[in-house]
Design a binder for these strands. Sequence first.
RNA 1: CGGGGUGUAGCUCAGUAUGGUUAGAGUACCUGGUUUGGGACCAGGGGGCCGAAGGUUCGAGUCCUUUCACCCCGACCA
Length: 434
Amino acid sequence: MRRSRAFIPTTKEAPSDATLPSHQFLVRGGFINQQGSGLYNFMPLGKIVLEKIRRVVKEELDKAGCNEVQLSFITPISLWDRSGRADTMGKEMLRISDRHDADFVLSPTNEEAMVELVKNRVNSYKDLPLNLYQINTKFRDEARPRYGLLRGREFLMKDAYSFHASKEDMIREFDLMEATYKKIFTRLGLDFRVVQADSGAIGGEGSKEFHVLADSGEDTIVICDACDYGANIEKIFDTEEEVNALNEKSYEELSEKTIDEKCSCGGNLSFKKGIEVGHIFQLGDRYSSSLEAKFNDENGKPKAFEMATFGIGVSRLVASVIEQNHDENGCIWTKETAPYMVNIMVSNIKDEAQTELGEKLYSELQDKNVEVILDDRKERFGFKMKDAELIGFPYTIIIGKELVNGLVQIYDRKTTEKTSVSVDEVMSKIMDII
RNA sequence: CGGGGUGUAGCUCAGUAUGGUUAGAGUACCUGGUUUGGGACCAGGGGGCCGAAGGUUCGAGUCCUUUCACCCCGACCA
């Protein structure tokens, strides 16, 4: 992509209501813009990042044997009447009616729809287990949307539902998904913890959350410094007062707060703030029973499916990457999430030698399938650098004043270091580090 | 859903207490010139139904009523 042809509206100032780094930088960098309360548009850069995260999620799930589907986003209210959630989900579920005055729902989650999909199509234990997922828009009419992409009303979520002949097999899948989620978040370059969680309204026995560690996280978790134990405080403390008191504390206050108790492994426990980006539940037969979704077991006896459900907040992950990876100048994307891996900056486009080299490197990197953007705008050096830092390309090749000596520079966004490299070596050097 | 706040140029905001020239600044944008390694400078220019609807008045961005939107604090939630 040529920067001169790209739609990347960056700004010097952030909207006055954006308080979190991810919100400010994603808006300033031209990734997203707000359409309404809790509603966001993804502009080209935001769309690229969103798709990259979606692809990582899809690749790992497919490797683990899951099937991707796509359910209709608008669902008839009757679907929700049958499970009883038309009443229990309350106002979070946005209802609409069509021209015939029939009532519909903008799906906030899809247990019912997925059970209905499988019901009467999977009739034998021989067809189990089965794990179906979709990466699709969800709508939850939050009482108070906030923090940009972290708590929107419309958001992109991966939701998966698995069906099993026995509880043992369901637990096997649950463990497999925990391992798969770890691969996904590791590939995305995130520092995260798996924690014991409160199952909440969705119900079920075992439930684990995946938290990206970030000062701005809305949840408070307890983690061990020696083993991989972690828990959401909602799980550990009994009363709402205790949980709320801790959640209100800032990151700084929490890090000073010590825990006297030791972990069962003997390690020290401490409080951290986390952003919940994944949640896996053991559902049992709650939905399959109420919706009468059954299969025949080895003895030909009808039995309700054992189920589990697995969620990942895909659009929330876009913001989570930045909450965890930014500095005062802007975004620092990880390798799997960067909108473009290499930015070629022609310092002065009136300098023919600089422009020529820029074009040459641009086409060579394209030939090698490197995601590359050429900053060919008629702007000054400082302007282009600030822009590149705000957007957060991992590497920028600066073609500028050192070219007369046969040198260019490679700017590393994460370390902010510039390294001079000869023109002859720059291609091999860049291919090495990306 | 309770409490508070804000809607004026693409963006950030003055102006509203006390109604009165042609509604402002910074930034962004366009033109010309100078500049060219850290969001440049000079000159000129375009851009507004002052959130919407009613009302008071000779006259409303400013006063009154209604309404919509957005934000913040709580409660709730992935």
